[in-house]
Design a protein around this nucleic acid. Structure first.
Length: 585
RNA sequence: GCGCCCGUAGCUCAACUGGAUAGAGCAUCUGACUACGAAUCAGAAGGCUGGGAGUUCGAAUCUCUCCGGGCGCGCCA
């Protein structure tokens, strides 16, 4: 239960009452009325902008309207005081009991605390990773994988029905190159000396295994055949082998892709032709000649008529080609068909998580999605900026040519899956991210993974201590929820409860914004509030959780501790990280 | 040249989609370890939110224009 949203409905009800009493005109637009925690804690518990939003419509001023609303708010049972502040905010203070009750809410809900229904069962398709099946996943893929996966978790928690999808680009020239490269390794596996890998083919060592596997299966069957015979076989064989490895790597990172879509199958099924015809029927396809790109003109540029999609009608900068000069479809045309396919499978909310090099692709794909679905589906594209791999502050050298690039598997093996997942969410997706092997495994407060995990471990530690003196039955969530929570009266305790109570609101806001990183930042804030209270107990022993001479107080504080552990675990579940019981030394 | 993203404390980053006096963490300075684990915490100091103009009750956020960085720019995917 989002307490802020709950209070907003109460505010709206009071406004209706003011309308009925003739204090406000009817027909006010309350859509922009918000209830938020004030930035400054001293301003109170919640703040509403209602007077400022409505004053104009009501023909009065915020400072005149606000006091009237404040008086109404003070009639509510949980409200201690409502004050007008600044340009017309109404700040509300709640009775401690209002917050204390939230602890019991957390314990009753358990890990489901924060689960919301704002998604209302709407179906969302989120496509992520979608790395070309020409080699193993490398370190940079981790970011898109985690952002997509965490966003999927987040949206599910917010009440959306989510499909997690991986688009296999198995149709273009790159997989042909893969087939040729694999053929070379196949011949090598049969004992041939292949020498240097020619330019234009993939040199990676990982293809040796592919070549060997095919040699084991088919022996010399393809060696002396023409390319037209072996290429499809080698290509498909290599794709299958590489996709097996990719799936294993994703599993190692805990990425739960549910649907793998094949570009080749899509094309073979006539989907591109169908999408093309749909666009044509809408009058959005024509033959035309594009201007050359200014400033950076390709050497072989020559004006030529092309089959173009009217992307500029939908906000793109130029119209985009759908066919290559040899008559085959462009990647863009295939992708239009793919997005139409998603729409036809019932999704109206589409999210693509793409790498930084796809930045220039966003507008055209959004234009195409709007066009092909008649505006019924909306595409949001999350661009992941680069990840700079570092070690002890120095860049990790990588060279694709020398085959020394860092694979995703390397990273997972070195620092662990939980660390990878958490760190990838410690920056907004459109901000570059530094990933330092030394720093992310450091056991200090500089390391947010550690800091948050340490919070959970401390909570569990307290509960373990309590278990030495109390029967297990007294420590269940149900028993603790029944503790005298009104004993949680210290300012720091109430402040901590406010942070807990912000979790459901954060889930909703982050889900609507499609921003999973906010969960990581929230967890950091929650951990900070808890560590602060913990340390207060160092100076002031009356603040300690376990009060030997006061069982009732102890029970109330243990309820709070368990609630903190629960919300931390709930948040980590969205990120896809396992909460730890204790820190290993 | 055009488009997209970014520019916030010395450094690394937030800021709840337009809210109040822009917040954290490092680093710096001051203080707290016979402990429910100090692997932490409290306090101080640090800002013309790259510059300028506009929109309105109100702008880091929206518009325009410069400056600086990243990514991309017809038959690669």
């Amino acid at each position: 239960m989002n307490v802020f949203k709950g209070f907003r409905t109460q505010v709206l009800a009071l406004l209706d009452g003011m309308v009925a009493a003739g204090e406000l005109p009817a027909g006010l637009d309350t859509a922009r009325v918000t209830v938020e925690p004030p930035r400054e804690a001293s301003h109170g518990d919640m703040s509403t902008n209602a007077a400022m939003v409505l004053a104009g419509q009501a023909g009065t001023s915020p400072r005149q309207l606000a006091p009237k609303l404040a008086r109404c708010l003070e009639t509510l049972p949980d409200v201690l005081a409502a004050e007008v502040a600044g340009p017309g905010f109404v700040n509300v203070r709640f009775a401690p009991g209002f917050w204390q009750a939230q602890v019991a809410e957390v314990l009753r809900a358990g890990l489901a605390y924060g689960t919301s229904t704002v998604g209302a069962g709407r179906r969302v398709n989120i496509e992520y990773v979608s790395a070309n099946p020409t080699g193993p996943l490398h370190a940079a893929h981790a970011r898109g994988a985690v952002i997509g996966d965490a966003l999927a978790n987040l949206l599910e928690k917010a009440g959306f029905v989510v499909t997690r999808e991986y688009y296999i680009n198995d149709a273009g020239s790159q997989v042909e190159t893969l087939g040729r490269s694999a053929f070379l390794r196949y011949r090598e596996a049969l004992g041939e000396e292949i020498g240097e890998i020619p330019a234009g083919l993939y040199p990676g060592e990982y293809l040796k295994e592919v070549g060997r596997a095919l040699a084991d299966r088919d022996a010399g069957r393809w060696r002396d055949e023409p390319e037209s015979t072996w290429l499809p076989v080698l290509r498909d064989f290599a794709i299958d082998r590489i996709m097996i490895g990719i799936r294993e790597d994703l599993a190692a990172l805990g990425i739960g892709i549910t649907v793998f879509s094949s570009e080749r199958a899509l094309v073979a099924g006539g989907a591109v032709q169908a999408a093309f015809e749909a666009l044509t029927a809408r009058g959005l396809v024509y033959q035309g000649v594009l201007e050359p790109p200014k400033g950076k003109k390709p050497d072989d540029w020559e004006p030529r008529p092309q089959t173009l999609f009217r992307a500029t009608d939908f906000g793109d900068d130029v119209d985009r080609p759908l066919r290559k000069s040899d008559g085959s479809w462009t990647y863009f045309a295939n992708d239009i068909a793919y997005h139409l396919d998603k729409y036809r499978r019932g999704f109206t909310v589409l999210i693509d998580v793409l790498g930084a090099d796809h930045g220039g692709y966003v507008k055209r794909m959004q234009a195409a999605t709007t066009a092909i679905t008649g505006g019924e589906a909306a595409l949001d594209v999350k661009i992941c900026q680069l990840v700079h791999l570092m070690d002890h502050g120095k860049p990790v050298k990588m060279s694709k040519r020398a085959g020394t690039f860092v694979t995703l598997r390397d990273v997972i093996d070195q620092v662990g899956r939980d660390v990878v997942r958490f760190i990838m969410l410690t920056r907004r997706n459109d901000q570059t991210l530094e990933f330092d092997f030394a720093k992310v495994t450091e056991q200090s407060k500089d390391n947010p993974v550690f800091y948050v995990q340490y919070c959970h471990a401390r909570c569990r530690s307290v509960l373990r201590h309590a278990a030495q003196n109390l029967p297990a039955a007294a420590l269940t969530p149900g028993a603790l929820a029944a503790a005298p929570l009104d004993r949680l009266a210290e300012p720091e305790e109430l402040a901590l409860i406010r942070v807990l109570a912000a979790w459901p609101r954060l889930v909703e806001a982050a889900a609507e914004a499609h921003e999973a990183h906010r969960v990581a930042f929230y967890l950091y804030d929650l951990a900070a509030a808890f560590h602060g209270l913990w340390n207060k107990g160092k100076d002031d022993t009356t603040l300690r959780f376990l009060a030997a001479d006061d069982p009732a107080l102890t029970a109330a504080r243990l309820a709070l501790v368990l609630a903190v552990a629960t919300v931390v675990a709930s948040g980590l579940a969205v990120i896809g990280v396992e909460p730890v019981e204790e820190m290993r030394s």
